[in-house]
Amino acid sequence: MTTTTNTTPTPRIAIIGAGPGGLTCARILQRHGITVTVHDRETGPDARNQGGTLDLHEDNGQIALREAGLLEEFFRLSRAEGQESRQMDAAGAILFHHVPEEGESFKPEIDRGQLRDLLLDSLKPGTVHWGHTLRSVDGPAEGPRQLRFTDGTTTDADLVIGADGAWSKVRSAISLATPRYSGVSFLEAWFDDVDSRHPDIADLVGQGSAAAADGDRGLFAQRNSGDHIRVYAIQRVPADWITAQGLTTQDTDGIRAFLLDQYRDWSPRLRRLITDNDGRYVDRPIHALPVPHTWEHNPTVTLLGDAAHLMPPLGVGVNLAMLDACELALAVVNHHSIDDAIHAYEKTMLPRSHEMQQLLDNGAEALLSTELPDFATDDSN
């Protein structure tokens, strides 16, 4: 008896989300001659700033880029010097300093926008359908699935891949789980033309990142390309703390006054990371999915990246998303049916993500800890 999962000789594959995971999956599928369509809610590739910088690791993110045929171009764009890191106390004393050795390439940095452009430019024209906000995934579990978008359009697919991030719409087709607030919130500040306009901050941060914490609050600063630095004030606060203080995200002076009080015992030099910024602050409450997050196998729908295993931002999210994307694409290439491909992919992905979820459960709290990370054991670096 034949199954209904291998519905067509050429399955219709729809990826929801044009982030690094979704685009990596599309790129690898296309390299193997498989047609795929990516749907994204943004109106175009330049609809918004893509955010800060990412470190792509040799044992996951770089594996995916190699399979995508883009690793050499990544190394051309990335910043090996961005692997420098400093850990300080609230007084500004350096507790740990890592300077990358010549040729070190375990986790070079690349701006999110640069990575996205690298992936987008590698795809066939028309692969990404912009302005497509998914409303629902309908149709029988065995397929075909019908994707309904908020603009009233629909399309059918034999495989739906949810690469649509923390608040995934695809996830609701196979899981009831929703992200929960971690109790820790980031407040982002930007610094432009740092070498000329903010030389002291440029010197404090160096070519990579600098972090400090006092047990209740923290700061994390990271250099981006183009002479920019992003700083994150990390606090254990209610998710609605700005409103609770009678403020709005547009009230830069009011938020600055609140932060100065919260960080009043910190060194004046570190406090400049939260007061000398160019422009407004951006509120980023940290959410995570329940641990572990799993779902009953579905023969036509699966998830990757944050849609599958949203965790605190501790340097693994994009790397796991791209490794997920690589393994899923290769599973589709190497199996005769979509159902078999999903089985093979989830057999590896779910245990890996469960292990990492457990490791990073409540990991946002670690960003406030005064203890040095495990890797910070050699002061000679």
Rank of each mutant, 00 (worst) to 15 (best):
M1T: 12
T4H: 10
T5H: 10
T8D: 06
I15Q: 00
P20F: 07
G21D: 01
L23G: 07
A26E: 01
A26G: 00
A26S: 03
R27Q: 11
Q30V: 03
G33P: 06
T35Q: 14
H39D: 01
R41S: 13
P45W: 06
L54E: 00
H57Y: 08
D59E: 14
Q62C: 05
Q62Y: 12
A64E: 10
E67W: 03
A68K: 05
F74Y: 15
F75T: 02
F75M: 09
M88S: 10
L95G: 07
H98Q: 07
E101A: 14
F106N: 11
K107P: 00
I110S: 06
Q114R: 13
Q114M: 14
R116T: 04
L119T: 07
S122L: 03
H129Q: 15
H129N: 12
W130Y: 13
W130K: 07
T133Y: 01
V137L: 12
A141K: 05
P144M: 07
T150A: 13
D151Q: 08
D151A: 06
G152I: 09
T154H: 09
T154F: 01
T154A: 13
D156A: 15
A157I: 03
L159R: 09
L176I: 05
P179H: 02
S182C: 02
G183S: 10
S185T: 15
A189Q: 10
W190Y: 12
D193H: 02
D193W: 00
V194G: 02
H198L: 02
A213G: 02
D214E: 06
D216Y: 13
R217N: 04
R217T: 08
G218F: 01
F220Q: 11
A221F: 11
Q222V: 14
Q222G: 13
R223T: 06
I229K: 05
I234G: 04
R236K: 15
A239F: 01
A244L: 11
Q245D: 06
T249A: 13
D253V: 10
A257D: 12
S267F: 00
R269L: 15
L270R: 05
R271T: 00
R272W: 02
L273S: 07
L273Q: 06
D278R: 04
V282A: 10
P290E: 07
N298Q: 12
T302R: 04
T302V: 07
D306R: 07
A308T: 02
H309R: 03
P313W: 05
G317C: 07
L323S: 12
C326E: 11
A329C: 05
A331E: 05
V332K: 02
H335N: 13
H343L: 14
L350C: 05
E355N: 13
M356H: 11
Q358D: 14
A366W: 14
L368S: 11
E371I: 01
D374E: 15
F375Q: 01
F375N: 04
S380A: 13
